[in-house]
Amino acid sequence: MSRSLAQAAPGLLASVATLTEMAQAIAGGADIVDLKDPARGALGAWRTADLAAAVVRWRALPPGAPPLSATVGDQPLEPGALAAAAARVAATGVPLVKIGFALGPETGAEALAACLAALAPLARAHRLVGVLFADLRPDLALVPRFAQAGFAGIMLDTADKTAGSLRRHLDDRALAGFLSAARAHGLMSGLAGSLTRADAAPLAALGPHYLGFRGALCATGRTGALDPARLAAVRAALRRAAAA
Rank of each mutant, 00 (worst) to 15 (best):
residue 3 R to P: 10
residue 4 S to G: 15
residue 4 S to K: 07
residue 5 L to V: 03
residue 6 A to G: 14
residue 8 A to L: 10
residue 11 G to M: 01
residue 12 L to V: 15
residue 12 L to D: 06
residue 13 L to A: 08
residue 17 A to S: 11
residue 20 T to W: 00
residue 20 T to E: 13
residue 22 M to C: 14
residue 23 A to S: 14
residue 23 A to H: 12
residue 25 A to C: 09
residue 25 A to I: 02
residue 25 A to D: 03
residue 26 I to K: 09
residue 27 A to D: 14
residue 27 A to N: 07
residue 29 G to V: 01
residue 44 G to D: 04
residue 48 T to W: 09
residue 48 T to E: 11
residue 48 T to D: 08
residue 49 A to C: 07
residue 50 D to R: 10
residue 51 L to P: 04
residue 51 L to S: 08
residue 54 A to G: 05
residue 55 V to N: 01
residue 60 A to E: 10
residue 61 L to I: 09
residue 63 P to W: 00
residue 64 G to V: 06
residue 64 G to K: 03
residue 65 A to E: 02
residue 66 P to Q: 00
residue 67 P to H: 07
residue 67 P to V: 12
residue 71 T to S: 08
residue 72 V to E: 03
residue 74 D to W: 00
residue 75 Q to V: 11
residue 79 P to S: 08
residue 82 L to V: 15
residue 83 A to Y: 01
residue 84 A to S: 14
residue 84 A to M: 06
residue 91 A to S: 11
residue 92 T to H: 08
residue 96 L to Y: 04
residue 107 T to M: 13
residue 109 A to R: 15
residue 109 A to D: 11
residue 109 A to N: 08
residue 110 E to D: 13
residue 112 L to C: 13
residue 114 A to V: 04
residue 116 L to T: 05
residue 117 A to M: 09
residue 118 A to N: 04
residue 126 H to C: 09
residue 126 H to L: 03
residue 126 H to W: 10
residue 129 V to R: 01
residue 129 V to P: 03
residue 132 L to G: 12
residue 135 D to T: 12
residue 138 P to A: 08
residue 143 V to A: 08
residue 143 V to G: 07
residue 144 P to C: 06
residue 146 F to M: 05
residue 147 A to G: 15
residue 148 Q to I: 12
residue 151 F to M: 03
residue 152 A to Y: 15
residue 156 L to W: 02
residue 156 L to N: 03
residue 157 D to W: 09
residue 158 T to G: 13
residue 159 A to T: 13
residue 160 D to R: 15
residue 162 T to I: 05
residue 167 R to K: 13
residue 169 H to D: 04
residue 169 H to G: 14
residue 170 L to F: 06
residue 170 L to P: 12
residue 173 R to D: 12
residue 174 A to C: 10
residue 174 A to F: 07
residue 176 A to K: 11
residue 176 A to G: 10
residue 178 F to T: 04
residue 178 F to R: 03
residue 180 S to Y: 11
residue 183 R to A: 15
residue 185 H to K: 10
residue 186 G to D: 01
residue 187 L to H: 10
residue 192 A to T: 04
residue 193 G to A: 06
residue 193 G to W: 00
residue 194 S to H: 03
residue 198 A to Y: 01
residue 198 A to I: 07
residue 198 A to L: 08
residue 202 P to N: 06
residue 207 G to P: 09
residue 213 F to D: 08
residue 214 R to I: 06
residue 218 C to A: 10
residue 224 G to C: 04
residue 224 G to L: 02
residue 225 A to F: 05
residue 228 P to T: 05
residue 228 P to F: 00
residue 229 A to F: 02
residue 232 A to K: 03
residue 234 V to W: 05
residue 234 V to S: 09
residue 235 R to W: 01
residue 236 A to F: 01
residue 236 A to L: 05
residue 236 A to I: 02
residue 239 R to T: 13
residue 240 R to V: 13
residue 241 A to N: 06
residue 244 A to H: 12
residue 244 A to T: 14
